[in-house]
Nucleic acid binder design. Sequence first.
DNA 1: ATGAACTTTCAAAAGATTTTGAAGGTGCAG
DNA 2: CTGCACCTTCAAAATCTTTTGAAAGTTCAT
Lengths: 189, 189
Amino acid sequence: MSERETPRQDDGHEAELIAAEAIGDVIEHWGFRRVLGRVWTILFIAAEPLPAAVIGERLSLSAGAVSMSLTELQRWGVVRRVFKPGERKEYFEAETDFWKMISKVFDERERLLAESVRARLERAVTMLEARPRLPGAEQRADRVRRLLSFVIVAETALDGFIRSRRVDFSPFGDLIRFPLRVATRKRRA
Amino acid sequence: MSERETPRQDDGHEAELIAAEAIGDVIEHWGFRRVLGRVWTILFIAAEPLPAAVIGERLSLSAGAVSMSLTELQRWGVVRRVFKPGERKEYFEAETDFWKMISKVFDERERLLAESVRARLERAVTMLEARPRLPGAEQRADRVRRLLSFVIVAETALDGFIRSRRVDFSPFGDLIRFPLRVATRKRRA
DNA sequence: ATGAACTTTCAAAAGATTTTGAAGGTGCAG
DNA sequence: CTGCACCTTCAAAATCTTTTGAAAGTTCAT
């Protein structure tokens, strides 16, 4: 950013940066910009509202990048702006209820796509039905209908899944300290 | 690709292209290249093995792009190479069991990331525990532990979800024709 | 009203990803 | 063995995304 000063993270924040990178990767993997995950994590770990400048320092980001990230995180409802009485500058804090975050993001993110995908697949079915004499058209229409059914089933199922989790965990407060069963995991990068 | 020939899709494949774009968007949204979704969709709708060249024509892709897409789709186990006896060229067909596809992709895709994320968060906790005198270190360690628990819980839950769906639907054969309940949807893009 | 302390915006630069197409396989028929 | 038809590779080019930093905008204290 300026003149080759070692990224100086011997200020007691190495651990946070490691965690921030890890969560940044997760978030990127789920289709967001990595920096959003990093910023959110810094706020989450801090456990108290921080001003934009502090975030920029810890993550070595320009003021502009921090500002944009915070704006976007607020749009997703996972970071809140906090006004401290008697303070000029603004503070930001992380939402801490994970399932609330996830369902909100899910809602926002998927609704439009799901609708547009449904509409387009329906259109494709209609088009294929309109020319039943085209060789294979009926078979192809079948395939597209199947795609459509699957999209709807998956959508409904996922939605139910997220809903049910929210209910499962909220009784424990917004803290999830119990890995319940840590068994058969899966997945990768 | 060559000389401004109208993308000529009056060959009876407009509907497939519309569906392919729709699924391409879904796939892109889930973190893959859009072209992978488009290629898979063409194969899926065709309902019979197609040679690479046909895919390229329908989607107006260069031979190179088709080849790379097919290779990648095979890596993910969602497209298979089919040798037709007595035919020189190779054919490709789409896997049609959606849940099988999803769980396979899930496995492949998440396992490494999940492991690396767990390791990094554990490291962060250890680092914070190592300097208990640093102001706030204990509180921060707590936050990181929480993140870690959540990652594990979410991982396990999602895994179970995918597993259970597979069981739910496989009895119906590889065709999902019953939207069972088409109710409360959600999501967007 | 002025200016200090911050924040936001946005166009340009940097960086990353995707696509292309030409060169180089591969395998088979003749 | 040669030529044809097809497939794969890969470096360069095109395209898309992200980051930067300077300028403009806010907000408040004085």
